[in-house]
C-alpha cells in the first residue's frame, strides 16, 4: 500500500486521527484514550497488518511529550508513524506489549528515561538506571549538577 492508500484507509478506519505532513511515511496524531483500540485494529486488519513495531520512543517538547510509534508490516511493507500527545505533568498511555512483544523492553526504556507511565504493563520498572534514581534523564529539563563533568 502506498502512502496515499494508507491515508485513505486510515481516515476510513479512524476518522478522529489527524495527519501531519512531511517525512517519508504517513504521520498521524491520535488521542491517547483511543490508542489501544487503534493499535489492535492496526495489528489485526488484514489490509494493514502492522505486525512489526520497529521503533518506539518519546520526544520531550518542553510543553508536552509525544510518544512516537514506528509501525511497519512485514507482509505489505508499508510503514506508519503514530504519534500521541501526552501532558507533561502526568504522562500516561496504554501499553501495547501484548500486541508487539518488543514493546515490553522499549516501554521500560521510555519509562526509565522519560517517566511515561504505561498502563497495564506487566513489569514496569526502571531498565537502565537504579530503582532509587531520581529524575528522568532524557527530559529536557533534567539537571544533574553532581555528575556533570565541567572542564
Amino acid at each position: 500500500m502506498n502512502n496515499e492508500d494508507l491515508k485513505n484507509k486510515i481516515t476510513e478506519l479512524f476518522p478522529t486521527a489527524t495527519f501531519e505532513e512531511g517525512g517519508e511515511w504517513v504521520n498521524i496524531f491520535i488521542d491517547p484514550a483511543q490508542w489501544k483500540t487503534i493499535a489492535e485494529r492496526l495489528r489485526t486488519t488484514n489490509e494493514l497488518a502492522f505486525d512489526y513495531l520497529f521503533c518506539l520512543t518519546c520526544v520531550d517538547w518542553k510543553t508536552h511529550f509525544t510518544m512516537v510509534y514506528h509501525l511497519s508490516s512485514t507482509i505489505h511493507r508499508h510503514a506508519l508513524v503514530l504519534k500521541i500527545k501526552l501532558e507533561r505533568s502526568n504522562p500516561e498511555v496504554e501499553t501495547v506489549c501484548d500486541l508487539w512483544r518488543t514493546a515490553e523492553l522499549h516501554e521500560r526504556e521510555v519509562y526509565d528515561l522519560f517517566g511515561v507511565t504505561f498502563l497495564n504493563h506487566p513489569d514496569l520498572r526502571r531498565l537502565f538506571l537504579t530503582d532509587d534514581f531520581i529524575g528522568y534523564p532524557l527530559r529536557k529539563d533534567f539537571e544533574d549538577p553532581i555528575n556533570m563533568i565541567k572542564l
Binding site: F54, C55, T57, V59, D60, V68, H70, T102, L105, E109
Partner: peptide
C-alpha cells in the same frame, strides 16, 4: 534505525537509536 527530530538548529533536538541488539 536512526530517528532524528530536528528543530532547524545545528544540533539534533532529539535522537533515537533503534539498536538491533536491544530488540
Amino acid at each position: 534505525g536512526i530517528y532524528i527530530v530536528s528543530e532547524g538548529g545545528t544540533t539534533p533536538y532529539r535522537i533515537k537509536f533503534r539498536s538491533p541488539g536491544f530488540s
